[in-house]
Each structure stands twice: as C-alpha cells, then as structure tokens.
C-alpha cells in the first residue's frame, strides 16, 4: 500500500524514548495505525504525517521519505 514511502518513525521514537502507545496518543490515532505506518503497510495522510513530524520536532522530510521506483511509476 505504501511501497514508495519510507519512514524513520522507529528511529525517531527510539531517540525520543517514546513508546508506540505514547506516540499514538499524542497524534490522536490508534496504536495499530502507528504499527502499520512503521511497517510501511499504510501511508498516512499528509495531515497525520505533519502531526507525527511535529511530535518529534522535525520536518516531514526528515521523518518520511518518498522513493521513486516502487510499484507506482
């Protein structure tokens, strides 16, 4: 589903010492959604991506990367 979008949420979470539960609560989604995004099974909406990046105090590009050449070309 999200073949072209990679993210480093796991890394940023570890750096901020944050659990999935806590991140989910702070951005207002369920924990399942955070798991799905971390595993690249679900591409979040632009709004959610911005919210996640803001929790880490980073820009969206630092958390999410768009990589050309996946399934959709």
């Amino acid at each position: 589903m999200a073949e072209n979008i990679n993210n480093s949420i796991k890394v940023w979470r570890a750096a901020r010492d944050m659990t999935q539960e806590e991140l989910a609560r702070r951005v207002g989604v369920t924990r399942q959604t955070i798991i799905a995004i971390e595993k690249n099974r679900y591409a979040p909406s632009l709004e959610l991506a911005f919210r996640i990046a803001r929790v880490f105090g980073e820009s969206v590009e630092n958390v999410f990367r768009y990589e050309e050449g996946g399934e959709a070309r």
């Binding site: 989910a24 609560r25 207002g28 989604v29 369920t30 399942q32 959604t33 799905a36 679900y42 979040p44 909406s45 959610l48």
Partner: peptide, 8 residues
C-alpha cells in the same frame, strides 16, 4: 481513548 482514526 482514540477508537477511530483515518486508517480505520
């Protein structure tokens, strides 16, 4: 608690 979000 959050029960529905955009993925749901």
């Amino acid at each position: 608690e959050v029960h529905t979000d955009e993925r749901v």
